[in-house]
Simulated assay, not measured.
Amino acid sequence: MKGVPYLVTVAILALAFTLASAHDPSPLQDFCVAINNTDSAVFVNGKFCKNPATVTANDFFFPELNIPGNIAASKLESSVNLVNVDKLPGLNTLGISLARLDFAPYGLNPPHIHPRGTELLVVMEGTLLLGFVTSNPNKLFTKVLNKGDVFVFPIGLIHFQFNIGQTNVVAFAGLSSQNPGLITIANAVFGSNPPINLDVLTKAFQLDKNVVDYLQKQF
């Protein structure tokens, strides 16, 4: 019986450790409003699962990522083809996605964040200037990448990629979420719907109202 208190103590410590270690899963959407009636539900934290009996190899397949993006149609002369769970259903619950990035000379993937994913990028062709900014203090980490070079952007931090070479750039990026999300800073600040109050932006950026009004009209 002397061993009983010891076993009880171990059990209590193990339970306390389990409770301390438990946490909600990372979100895969900006929000997930709870609903009791599943007939009206659209998605959970991820996607509802397909019946395994109806799953095929095509659910785990995405074709033609070798095809360059249409950079000519972009004002920024860049293209991002994200293969997330919406395009590749087999990614559901696996916590990963992939993107192909194409840049014309001086093409830009503007400052943006992925609120739910770390990004690991490898340059396949060309020369790319890239970097990210830390939260506090706002320190810039920047690097020039050439063919075969790899760089990582920590989750949720503002980052960018810019082609500083004379030829097109091709890069691939892996992201640590099946739905990493994208917030392009300029679009979000000056192009939100409805728009952010003009006085708020004027004071925040210390700009003339006419300048802020002009920027909002661009987005």
Rank of each mutant, 00 (worst) to 15 (best):
A57V: 12
Q216P: 03
N136Q: 14
Y106I: 01
L108K: 10
L15N: 06
F205Y: 15
G107H: 09
D59F: 07
T167M: 06
G126C: 02
V150N: 00
I113P: 02
V150C: 05
H114G: 07
H23E: 13
G148E: 03
I158M: 04
L19K: 09
L121E: 02
P89L: 08
F219P: 00
G126R: 00
T93L: 00
H23L: 01
N92E: 11
S79M: 03
L7M: 14
V144N: 10
A57W: 03
K50P: 01
K147F: 00
N179Q: 09
K147Q: 10
T142R: 03
V170S: 12
S74V: 11
A171P: 09
L94R: 15
A53L: 12
L108A: 12
T184F: 05
I158G: 00
L82T: 12
N81R: 08
G191Q: 11
A11V: 13
L175K: 14
L175Q: 13
L65I: 15
D149T: 01
A57E: 14
G156V: 00
T118Q: 04
S74Q: 09
V33I: 13
D102N: 15
G156N: 13
E119Y: 01
A186C: 10
F205P: 08
P52C: 06
D86C: 00
A188Q: 11
K209I: 06
I67A: 10
Y106C: 07
G181D: 08
P5D: 12
N109S: 14
K87E: 14
P154Q: 02
R100N: 04
K209E: 14
I67T: 14
T54E: 14
A204T: 15
A104G: 06
D30V: 13
A204S: 15
L65V: 15
K217V: 04
T56L: 05
A73H: 04
N84W: 02
L157I: 04
I113V: 15
L13D: 05
K75F: 07
F153R: 03
N36C: 00
G131E: 01
S177K: 06
N197F: 03
T142I: 02
V122M: 00
T202R: 11
F60G: 09
A53F: 04
C49S: 12
T118H: 01
G69Q: 10
V83W: 01
N146D: 07
T184R: 08
N187M: 05
V169T: 14
S26Q: 12
G148S: 02
P27E: 05
D149E: 10
F190D: 08
V44H: 03
N51E: 09
L28C: 06
R100K: 07
Q206T: 10
G95H: 03
F43P: 00
P115C: 10
L19A: 13
L182F: 10
G95W: 01
V212C: 03
I196H: 14
F61Q: 07
N109V: 14
P115D: 06
L19H: 03
F205E: 09
N66D: 15
E125Y: 08
G181R: 02
P63C: 07
L7R: 13
N179I: 01
R100Y: 02
E125R: 15
Q216D: 04
S135Y: 03
A104S: 15
D199I: 06
N51C: 08
D149P: 00
S74I: 11
I67D: 07
A188N: 13
A204I: 08
K203I: 11
L128C: 07
L120A: 09
N51M: 04
